[in-house]
Each structure stands twice: as structure tokens, then as C-alpha cells.
């Protein structure tokens, strides 16, 4: 049994949040540079230039990339042979989140669903974090983090198709979701697609798909070919950076699959804006 200190987890989570808020990950920066170089629309080229300049300013001056510093979303794999000493794992994640958002002068965006009152003084500053736990073999602690903004969540969609819809139906659905979203989710986007499982499994998979590195290949050849097909179709929509009309609407399409019930084909599309703030650490 390996032991890990509560306060070490708090510190690591806090550092992740502070770093992610002001530093665009290399994969996203590189994908945006490529978009800038290849963009055919002069208006979108200027927008992409601003986005890259913004990333430079944010990193150099330690300022948040975007005022929507998101809800804190975690995918955590906990080894069965790992013991947290001095407190619970869930509490440590939340405490690190709160400390990070406070110390970084990041916006607290959690509110009551009905009154819309900000919950920072009730449940904690930008708490609760959204945490997806998985128990795995071994004694590791694997933490994937993303700051997820509201604009791109608002255009995300899920459905459960009859199996006959198949690959063609999924591709049409993803295209429709991105077409309807237009300029609203701050393109160029990363598009996470979750296929199969139960209804909620597809949704969680589509979220997790967004954590994959931009520019990486899908290990499944069928999904890889779907991703390539969708990249072309979605860029052909002509939405462009910030929807001004252009040739770069998506930076990447990432698909995750699950076995599903013989009666159903769940599909979920989770959209990520160009400010793709994510990070992965192992403790």
C-alpha cells in the first residue's frame, strides 16, 4: 500500500489550476498556429492572430486566457493500492480547486440552478469541482484536469439513436450540432464525440475525448477514419474563427467508443472552445 499526503494532492491540484488558467497547452497553441497559417479568410486570420497574441500575453503576464475560467472538471484514476493520509481524496481535489481559483484571481462561476445566485460563499469558491472517479489496479494517482467554459457546453448535445442510424447517422448528427452552434462556442473548436455505452456513458466519453492531445491519432482505425471525414465536413461548414466565415472551424475531432446495448446507439457531442485548457499529471 502506497501512501500519499492529502496536502500534496491539494498543492498539485492548485498548481494545475493556476498553470492552466494562464498557459494554453502546447498542442492547442500549435493547432492554432497551423490554423493561422492556412486560413483563407483575412477576417479570420486577424481573429486567429488575436487568439495567439492573447495566449502570449496570458502566459507572459500570468493573466487568465479567458474571463470564463470555467468549472473545474477532473477525470481521476485511483489505484486500489493507494491510501490518502490526512484527509479524503475528494476533499483534497475540491480544496485544491478552491485555492487555485482564489489565488489566481479566477472567476467563480458556479451558481444555483434556479436563483442563479453565485455559490462562492455557500459551497466554496467555484465549488464543487466536477469529478469523475475510476478505480484501477496499482498504486498510482492519475489526474486529468480541464477548465470548462460555459459557451461551448451550451451547444453540446446528446441523443440515443436506433442502431440502424449507424456511422452515417452519427456523422450527420455531429455535423448538425456544429452547424447549429455556428459562432457561439468560440471556434475553432475541438469536438469530442462519445459513442455507445448507456446514455450517460456516451456523454462522459464525449467529455473525456476532449482531453486527448490535439494532433494525436485515434488508435482505432474505424474511429480514425471517422475523425478524418468529420474534420473535412466540419471545416467545410465555413463557420471559421469566431464564426466570421472561414476555412478553420475545428482544430480536431476526437471520438471515444463503448460497447452498447443491442437496442441502442447513444451519441454525444461535447464541444470545446479554442481556449482548450487541459492538463494531465501522475502522482
Amino acid at each position: 500500500m502506497r501512501e500519499i499526503k492529502y496536502e500534496d494532492i491539494v498543492k498539485s491540484v492548485k498548481d494545475m489550476i493556476l498553470y492552466s488558467a494562464t498557459n494554453l497547452p502546447k498542442d492547442a497553441y500549435k493547432a492554432l498556429e497551423t490554423a493561422y497559417k492556412t486560413e483563407k479568410s483575412e477576417v479570420c486570420k486577424q481573429v486567429l492572430k488575436q487568439i495567439l497574441e492573447n495566449a502570449d500575453i496570458a502566459a507572459n503576464e500570468a493573466r487568465p486566457l479567458c474571463q470564463d475560467t470555467g468549472l473545474a472538471v477532473f477525470f481521476i484514476k485511483v489505484g486500489e493500492d493507494l491510501k490518502v493520509v490526512g484527509g479524503s481524496l475528494k476533499k483534497a481535489i475540491n480544496e485544491g480547486t478552491e485555492q487555485g481559483y482564489k489565488e489566481g484571481y479566477l472567476r467563480a462561476s458556479t451558481c444555483h440552478w434556479d436563483t442563479r445566485a453565485n455559490l462562492k460563499d455557500e459551497v466554496g469558491y467555484n465549488l464543487p469541482a466536477i469529478i469523475h472517479f475510476d478505480i484501477v489496479e496499482g498504486d498510482g494517482l492519475d489526474i486529468e484536469y480541464a477548465a470548462k467554459g460555459g459557451g461551448s457546453e451550451n451547444v453540446s448535445r446528446a441523443t440515443v439513436f436506433p442502431p440502424a442510424k449507424g456511422r452515417k447517422g452519427i456523422i450527420e448528427y455531429v455535423k448538425q450540432v456544429i452547424s447549429d452552434a455556428g459562432p457561439n462556442p468560440c471556434p475553432p473548436l475541438t469536438v469530442g464525440v462519445g459513442i455507445g455505452g448507456t446514455f450517460e456513458k456516451a456523454v462522459i466519453s464525449s467529455k473525456h475525448a476532449l482531453f486527448r492531445e490535439l494532433g494525436s491519432k485515434n488508435p482505432d482505425p474505424v474511429l480514425e477514419s471517422m475523425e478524418e471525414e468529420l474534420m473535412v465536413l466540419l471545416n467545410n461548414l465555413g463557420i471559421g474563427a469566431m464564426g466570421m466565415g472561414g476555412t478553420n472551424t475545428v482544430l480536431g475531432v476526437h471520438i471515444e467508443k463503448n460497447p452498447c446495448h443491442i437496442a441502442s446507439l447513444p451519441v454525444s457531442v461535447n464541444v470545446q472552445c479554442h481556449s482548450s485548457r487541459h492538463m494531465h499529471i501522475k502522482l
Binding site: 494562464t22 481573429v47 488575436q50 487568439i51 497574441e53 492573447n54 500575453i57 496570458a58 503576464e61 493573466r63 487568465p64 486566457l65 479567458c66 474571463q67 470564463d68 472567476r107 467563480a108 462561476s109 453565485n118 462562492k120 459557451g151 459562432p183 468560440c186 469566431m242 466570421m244 472552445c273 479554442h274 481556449s275
Partner: peptide
């Protein structure tokens, strides 16, 4: 339209800010 997700760049063009109503709404 202003460029979404360019909050650090746009903030440079804001020289002063004063809350004039509804401070209870925070951001």
C-alpha cells in the same frame, strides 16, 4: 463582435473600471 477567449488581450484596452450598480452580482 469582440474576439471570444481573448480576455487577456482585450483587458489591455480597458483603462479604468468602476462598479456603478448591483455589486451583489459580483462578476
Amino acid at each position: 463582435g469582440a474576439t471570444g477567449g481573448a480576455g487577456a488581450l482585450l483587458a489591455r484596452q480597458i483603462k479604468s473600471a468602476e462598479v456603478i450598480a448591483y455589486p451583489e452580482l459580483g462578476p
